[in-house]
Amino acid sequence: MELLQQKILNEGTVLSDHVLKVDAFLNHQIDPQLMVEVGKEFARRFQNDRITKVLTLESSGIAPAMMAALELGVPVIFARKRKSLTLVNDLLTASVYSFTKKETNEISVSQKFLEPTDNVLIIDDFLANGQAALGLASIVELAGAKTAGIGIVIEKSFQNGGKLLRNKGFKVESLARIQSLEGGKVTFGTEGQVPRPTIYSQNQETSVQEVGVGR
Rank of each mutant, 00 (worst) to 15 (best):
M1W: 08
E2K: 10
K7S: 14
T13M: 14
V14S: 09
D17S: 15
V19L: 13
K21H: 13
A24F: 04
F25Y: 08
I30V: 15
Q33T: 02
M35N: 01
V36T: 07
E37R: 07
A43K: 04
R50A: 13
I51C: 02
K53H: 09
T56C: 08
S59M: 13
P64A: 08
A69S: 09
A69D: 04
L70P: 03
L72H: 04
L72C: 03
V76M: 15
I77K: 01
A79I: 06
K83E: 13
L85N: 05
N89C: 08
D90G: 07
L91G: 06
K102P: 01
E103N: 10
T104C: 08
I107W: 07
S108W: 06
Q111R: 14
F113D: 04
P116S: 07
T117A: 15
I123C: 06
I123T: 03
A128D: 03
A133K: 08
A137N: 10
S138D: 13
I139L: 13
V140C: 06
E141K: 15
A143V: 00
A145P: 01
T147Y: 08
Q159M: 13
G161Q: 10
L164Q: 12
L165S: 13
E173Q: 08
E173T: 04
A176E: 00
R177T: 12
E182G: 14
E182C: 14
E182K: 15
G184D: 01
V186P: 00
V186L: 04
V186R: 01
T198W: 04
S201L: 12
Q202W: 09
Q202N: 10
N203P: 00
V208D: 10
E210Q: 15
V211K: 09
G212V: 14
